[in-house]
């Protein structure tokens, strides 16, 4: 009798806890989506509910027509794509060099770089702003892109992966007379593709979600990224719950969809990069 109970109690318990955890995790996001299509005022009524009395897209229309969040969407898209492109190129070059090219002082240089990984970017931010100011890059997209165009983490990720490329392969290409650039372009880049996909997704999400640096460097609201525009919106429209939720959906949805589409590459990248060393 007791054995019989135990046989179904344990799986039920484990799975019930998982369902509870998933429900708690999803609740704020589900409510965000649901509140964004509620008629004005409904999300601020008692008792709070999940289900809209009728579905309306007026808040989304408001965001695009009246509050020009479409422009912020464009800024975010442009910046995230640019940073992704630059960082994939620059980090793959440097990571490959650290992994496969022999030059004096290589390992020492790499160790110095690794030390930098524990330093938060905030520490550099004030002088970085002054530097951008003297370069005339304040309130430009370039001012956002440049500091992220290459990064220690990206180089580290590529290097870890590139180490598995056999030296014989590269040497054979050299014997055949291929230039180092051609080897990188035609041989190494295709082999690095899995890690570059991971890095690309990582950088896109990171740039899309970034807040502090765009907030500092983009001073003009026509250039704001979505998070900066959204934070700005809180100041004036905090009472318009449904409108704020529509803005949040607009900000979160693209990265959430990207993650769902690419989650295998993304998660494998995290576990591989994180646990190897």
């Amino acid at each position: 009798m007791r054995r019989g109970v135990k046989r179904w109690a344990a799986p039920l318990g484990v799975n019930a806890l998982l369902v509870l955890g998933a429900a708690l995790t999803m609740a704020p996001l589900v409510w965000m989506v649901s509140a964004s299509v509620m008629p004005t005022g409904e999300a601020s009524s008692f008792p709070p509910g999940f289900i809209p009395s009728r579905i309306t897209f007026e808040h989304y229309r408001d965001l695009f027509q009246r509050l020009s969040l479409g422009r912020a969407f464009g800024s975010s898209l442009l910046l995230a794509s640019s940073v992704t492109f630059c960082s994939v190129i620059l980090n793959s070059m440097a990571g490959y060099a650290f992994a496969k090219l022999r030059f004096p002082g290589r390992d020492r240089l790499f160790r110095v770089l690794l030390l930098g990984m524990v330093i938060p970017v905030q520490i550099a931010m004030l002088p970085l702003f002054l530097l951008m100011r003297s370069l005339g890059l304040v309130n430009t997209y370039l001012g956002v892109i440049l500091p992220s165009a290459a990064g220690i983490f990206g180089i580290f990720l590529v290097r870890q992966f590139a180490r598995s490329i056999p030296d014989e392969l590269l040497d054979a290409a050299r014997v055949d007379g291929a230039s180092e650039w051609l080897i990188y372009r035609r041989l190494v880049l295709p082999l690095l593709k899995p890690v570059l996909v991971t890095l690309g997704v990582f950088m896109f999400l990171g740039t899309w979600n970034d807040f502090l640096w765009p907030l500092v460097v983009l001073t003009d609201d026509t250039k704001y990224t979505l998070p900066v525009a959204l934070a700005n919106l809180v100041g004036e429209h905090a009472q318009d719950t449904e409108l704020m939720m529509a803005g949040s959906v607009l900000t979160v949805l693209p990265v959430l969809l990207l993650f769902l589409a690419m989650q295998r590459a993304y998660i494998e990248g995290i576990t591989a990069g994180g646990l190897k060393e």
Partner: peptide, 21 residues
């Protein structure tokens, strides 16, 4: 995947959502 979803969400946006939560 469900547990990981909040990680990729935009911090500012979820902070806005949590203001109302």
């Amino acid at each position: 995947t469900t547990f990981f979803a909040p990680v990729v969400t935009t911090l500012v946006a979820v902070a806005v959502v949590f203001r109302y939560v």
